[in-house]
Structure formats: C-alpha cells, structure tokens
Computed example of a mutant assay.
Amino acid sequence: MVKYFGNDVRRINHAMKVYSFAKTIGELETISDEKFQVLEVAAILHDIGIKESERKHNSSSGTYQEIEGPPIARELLSEFKLGSEFIDRVCYLIGNHHTYSNIDNMDFQILVEADLLVNIFEDSLSEQAINLLKEKYFKTRSGNSFLECMYQN
C-alpha cells in the first residue's frame, strides 16, 4: 500500500490509522482468526482505488473507490499465497466499504467503524453529524467506546 501510494503521505496515513483502529477493535471484539486476517488486509487496502478514481473519474468519491479498488487489490494480493475465498472477501469489503447497507458480518462492521473514526477527525465533522453516525452505524462495544472517548466528552 505504501509503495502503491508513493509520496501521497496523507492517504498512507489515513490507511494506517484505519488499520490501527480496525486491528484494535477486532482484537477487543474477539473475532475469528480468519475474519481478523481479512479485516487487517481490507483495512490497509480499503482506499486503494482512490488513485484510479481520480485518474479515470476525476473524483475520489466512495462510489468510484468501490468500483476501482477491488481489481487493484486483487492484483496486489495475487503476489501472495492467499486463497481465492480470502481475496474475494477482501475485495468484497473494499468494493462495498462505503455502502453501509451491505454490512453482512463483523469484519465489515469493524472496517466501517474504523474508517468512520478516522474520517470524523479528518473531515472535522460536527457534533450533530457524529451523533447521527453513532446512531446509524456504530454497533460494536469497542467502536462505540472509541467514538465516545474521542468525540463525545
């Protein structure tokens, strides 16, 4: 991911922060080892489609990231000895990480919460927006705890 983004330090830092929150929430929520490994890879690669989105569509919108990200992730992951189900799941998460209605398991839920925790800060969201995100999308005990500690004093 770092090599792919090159000198785009902002995007690298974003991915690393999402990865850190996802890893921590995954550990605290005690998900299965398989889901945890998928979560880690998906978290680090979740925005991998952003460069192509900007190049092809002149936009970094989540919709375009979901379209452009999975093929890039699949190509990057093909260098490793990973099973097709593993890669398919990672690509599914990358291809849906802005489509909250598609959340179908804990790995997906945690990825969304981790990304939102970082985006709240990076986008300087209002208290009202934070409360709405909490009500609609935060389901894990750990994700809620982080949200409350960080943004709801």
Rank of each mutant, 00 (worst) to 15 (best):
V9S: 06
N105R: 15
N131V: 01
I130T: 09
F80P: 06
Y137H: 15
K81Y: 11
Y64S: 01
E79Y: 12
C149I: 05
A43N: 01
L132S: 13
G49I: 08
K51M: 10
Y100E: 14
G83A: 08
Y92K: 10
L39M: 02
I94F: 12
K35F: 04
L28P: 01
E148P: 04
R55H: 09
K134S: 09
G95I: 10
S59Q: 05
G62C: 02
L111D: 12
C91Q: 08
G69D: 07
Y151E: 03
V118W: 04
Q128T: 14
E85D: 15
Y92A: 08
N58S: 13
N119G: 07
H57T: 00
T140E: 03
I110W: 12
P71T: 10
Y19H: 14
L76E: 13
K51W: 01
K51A: 00
K134M: 05
F5D: 07
I94R: 08
I50V: 15
L117M: 06
A22D: 02
I110D: 11
E68P: 02
L93K: 11
K23F: 10
F5A: 08
R11F: 10
E34I: 05
S78I: 09
D33R: 11
Y151F: 15
P70R: 04
K139A: 07
N144T: 07
P71V: 09
H97E: 06
I48H: 04
S53N: 00
L133N: 06
M16E: 15
K134E: 13
L76V: 14
K23Q: 10
L39T: 02
I48T: 05
E29K: 09
D33G: 08
N102G: 00
K136M: 11
R89S: 12
N153L: 13
I130R: 01
I25L: 04
K136E: 14
E27Q: 12
L111S: 12
H98Q: 09
R74W: 07
Q37K: 14
N144R: 10
E122M: 09
S78Q: 11
Y4G: 03
L116K: 15
G83T: 12
I31E: 04
I87Q: 08
G143H: 02
D107N: 13
D47N: 12
S60G: 14
F21L: 04
E127R: 14
N119F: 07
I110C: 12
F21M: 03
H46T: 00
F146Q: 04
L82H: 06
M150E: 06
I120Q: 07
S101A: 13
Y4W: 13
R141H: 13
G49R: 03
D47P: 01
I72N: 07
E85P: 06
F138L: 05
A73C: 01
F80C: 02
K23W: 06
G26M: 08
S101I: 10
Q128A: 14
R10D: 15
K23G: 00
A22S: 12
I25F: 05
N119C: 12
A42L: 05
H97T: 10
E122I: 02
E135R: 08
S124M: 06
H98E: 03
K35T: 00
I87C: 11
V18W: 06
I25M: 01
V118H: 07
H57V: 01
K81M: 10
E113L: 10
I120D: 03
H57P: 00
S32F: 01
V90A: 09
L28T: 01
F121Q: 14
Y64Q: 07
F86C: 09
L132D: 11
